[in-house]
Simulated assay, not measured.
Amino acid sequence: MPLPNDERLVALANDILLQFDQLFGVHPGYRPAHAKGLMLIGTFTPATQARSLTMAPHILSASTAVTARFSNSTGLPEIPDSAPESNPRGLAIRFNLAEHVHTDIVSHSTNGFPARNGEEFLGLLRAIAASGSEVPSPKPIEQFLGSHPAALAFVQAPKPFPSSLASDTYFAPSAYSFTNDGGETRFGRYRIVPEEGNDYLSDSEVIGLAANYHYDELAERVTIQPIRFHIRVQLAKPGDITDDVTVHWPEDRELVDFGTIELTEVVPDSVVQQKHIIFDPIPRVEGIANSADPLLELRAAIYLVSGRRRRAARVQEQESELTAGAV
């Protein structure tokens, strides 16, 4: 996918990436956020009910191959799974529609997002970076949160440690426009719910976690039985705000069954493939389109710039390996 023609948007994407680099350091070949992760493959089976919502190709097909990546927060590839900063966890799902044709869902385990646009998010990152332990109160982050109630609510929202990444619920923060074959359009947000239900660890259990607990557990679990999630779409009612990720819709909004993903194995070369794959928050398929959420195009630009940097680092790594082998 190409970069957007909007130079201001691309500049903002680069500014945010540079701020992540300042916060977490530069780790060639890894994402600047959600660096630590694991990829699995499996199958998506659409729900019959989803045809009332959209005519998207993966809803009209009997099944679609999927690639899913679980991840920890931060840009630290070696962050321990017990670190509070590893939450919220991420789950990105790629629906492989044909060769080089796909649509993705990008989600995380806290409902919502701390900023409604890129400028606000950059301000949050800069406030965090300027608030070291040596900085007296009120620190820049304290001032930012004091003047941005949505960011404060996100920071204060519970972020429990799941007993397994397969037993947590994930939310795609942005709304999308869904259109069925009758031309009816409704706005909705994805919600990815574990088939076995949510299950979380106590504080004492978290303290004793091994550094790679969640990914070792996930890799072992999938050898015993498939990991299943149900994808649902929370539908907006007329008047609900659809262009602001910081605004929650009431829980009484209708949930439509979209389908089920069944993950069956870890990608054999998961580390290499994670460096290559670039997820896209923009649907780019018939029947599902962007809302007016300003973060969607920005996130797509950030993911693309980050992905190109990651792939370039992988090429340099391969060239270094070849040079070393020739000596």
Results as ranks from 00 to 15, higher is better:
residue 296 L to E: 02
residue 304 L to R: 13
residue 276 H to T: 12
residue 282 I to Y: 00
residue 301 A to G: 06
residue 253 R to C: 03
residue 262 E to Q: 10
residue 270 S to I: 15
residue 301 A to K: 13
residue 261 I to E: 09
residue 262 E to K: 10
residue 286 E to K: 14
residue 290 N to F: 01
residue 268 P to E: 07
residue 257 D to K: 09
residue 289 A to Q: 11
residue 288 I to M: 14
residue 259 G to M: 07
residue 287 G to P: 01
residue 302 I to D: 09
residue 262 E to P: 00
residue 304 L to E: 14
residue 299 R to C: 15
residue 281 P to A: 13
residue 277 I to L: 06
residue 279 F to P: 12
residue 270 S to Y: 02
residue 270 S to A: 04
residue 256 V to Y: 12
residue 293 D to C: 11
residue 299 R to H: 13
residue 264 T to Y: 01
residue 273 Q to E: 07
residue 271 V to Q: 12
residue 278 I to C: 00
residue 298 L to Y: 02
residue 273 Q to S: 14
residue 258 F to Y: 15
residue 279 F to V: 14
residue 267 V to A: 01
residue 258 F to I: 13
residue 293 D to F: 00
residue 263 L to E: 15
residue 268 P to Q: 04
residue 298 L to Q: 02
residue 293 D to I: 02
residue 291 S to W: 00
residue 290 N to E: 15
residue 261 I to W: 07
residue 278 I to A: 00
residue 301 A to V: 01
residue 293 D to M: 08
residue 269 D to W: 01
residue 294 P to Q: 07
residue 273 Q to N: 04
residue 284 R to V: 12
residue 275 K to V: 02
residue 278 I to Q: 01
residue 280 D to G: 01
residue 266 V to Q: 04
residue 298 L to H: 03
residue 283 P to T: 03
residue 279 F to N: 12
residue 300 A to H: 01
residue 294 P to S: 04
residue 278 I to L: 02
residue 285 V to E: 10
residue 281 P to E: 02
residue 304 L to W: 05
residue 299 R to T: 10
residue 291 S to C: 10
residue 283 P to N: 03
residue 284 R to W: 12
residue 276 H to W: 10
residue 274 Q to N: 08
residue 257 D to N: 15
residue 275 K to F: 00
residue 302 I to W: 00
residue 302 I to M: 13
residue 300 A to P: 02
residue 301 A to N: 04
residue 270 S to W: 02
residue 279 F to Y: 08
residue 263 L to I: 10
residue 284 R to M: 11
residue 261 I to R: 09
residue 265 E to C: 09
residue 285 V to C: 15
residue 288 I to A: 03
residue 257 D to L: 12
residue 286 E to G: 15
residue 279 F to M: 14
residue 271 V to Y: 12
residue 302 I to L: 01
residue 299 R to P: 13
residue 290 N to L: 14
residue 304 L to P: 07
residue 282 I to T: 14
residue 300 A to M: 06
residue 263 L to M: 14
residue 298 L to A: 03
residue 301 A to I: 03
residue 267 V to C: 01
residue 272 V to S: 05
residue 259 G to Y: 00
residue 274 Q to R: 13
residue 287 G to L: 07
residue 255 L to V: 02
residue 290 N to Y: 05
residue 289 A to V: 11
residue 269 D to C: 07
residue 301 A to L: 01
residue 303 Y to F: 11
residue 263 L to N: 11
residue 287 G to Q: 04
residue 253 R to T: 02
residue 285 V to M: 05
residue 297 E to A: 08
residue 263 L to H: 08
residue 260 T to A: 06
residue 265 E to P: 11
residue 300 A to G: 08
residue 290 N to C: 07
residue 254 E to Y: 08
residue 295 L to K: 06
residue 257 D to C: 09
residue 275 K to H: 05
residue 274 Q to I: 13
residue 276 H to A: 05
residue 295 L to E: 08
residue 279 F to Q: 15
residue 292 A to M: 15
residue 259 G to A: 12
residue 283 P to R: 08
residue 258 F to P: 08
residue 296 L to S: 09
residue 266 V to K: 06
residue 280 D to E: 12
residue 302 I to C: 04
residue 265 E to N: 09
residue 292 A to R: 09
residue 279 F to C: 07
residue 288 I to F: 03
residue 270 S to Q: 08
residue 291 S to T: 13
residue 304 L to M: 13
residue 254 E to L: 15
residue 260 T to P: 11
residue 266 V to E: 03
residue 297 E to N: 10
residue 297 E to L: 08
residue 271 V to I: 14
residue 274 Q to M: 11
residue 285 V to D: 09
residue 303 Y to V: 10
residue 276 H to Q: 11
residue 304 L to I: 06
residue 261 I to L: 11
residue 296 L to W: 00
